[in-house]
């Protein structure tokens, strides 16, 4: 079997790369090109940790052959922040606690970006549907959903670095025995 040459745009940079035709886009990005932000959680398209944008659409890159990227535009989690400036989605995940161990986080952030590119005013149901293919074992998802909604609706606050952390709505109970 011979290597095939693939030409594509990776995070706004043109790339020419030779790879065996059976290799996945995820393998090529991680093993050959050193972009390890996209993770392999299952290898079967079930967990979404390898989600990236192919021509702006989210795909599970463990199921995409590298050759399929030929002539197309690939955006990974590493390509979202521009000139060191985090996107509102990234800031919202930090501020609203939308991550714990972080191994699924790249996939969620990429999926959230794809949603907000196509829908500037998503409902909560839209958000849940958009990340329905991404698994997280740590957070229970609530803070991820809050973070994405905040990124959609509180953009001004999220780009203001002096803005304070979100305040807990709920009181802490410190009374004596009842």
């Amino acid at each position: 079997m011979e290597q095939t040459t693939i030409r594509f745009t990776l995070n706004d940079r043109p790339i020419t790369h030779a790879a065996m035709p059976y290799r996945t886009l995820l393998e090529v990005l991680r093993d050959d090109l050193g972009l390890t932000g996209s993770k392999e959680g299952c290898g079967t398209g079930d967990c979404g940790a390898c989600t990236l944008l192919l021509d702006g659409k989210p795909v599970t890159s463990c199921l995409v052959l590298a050759a399929e990227a030929d002539g197309r535009k690939v955006t990974t989690v590493e390509g979202l922040a521009k000139d060191g400036k985090l996107t509102p989605v990234q800031v919202a995940f930090i501020r609203y606690g939308g991550l714990q161990c972080g191994i699924c986080t790249s996939g969620f952030i990429v999926a959230a970006h794809a949603l907000l590119e196509s829908n500037k005013t998503p409902s909560e149901a839209d958000v849940r549907a958009a990340i329905g293919g991404n698994l997280c074992r740590c957070t229970g998802y609530d803070k991820i959903v809050r973070a994405i909604l905040a990124a959609a609706y509180d953009e001004g606050e999220l780009v203001d670095e002096s803005a304070s952390m979100p305040v807990m709505e709920k009181p802490l109970f410190t009374e004596g025995p009842m």
Partner: peptide, 24 residues
């Protein structure tokens, strides 16, 4: 008692964090 943002969060949201399988 403050809800400080996680110290590891900025690297985790940009894909910069290295897990064992990411190190070569």
């Amino acid at each position: 008692g403050e809800s400080h943002a996680r110290v590891d969060a900025p690297d985790k949201v940009t894909g910069a964090t290295r897990y064992p399988g990411d190190i070569a």
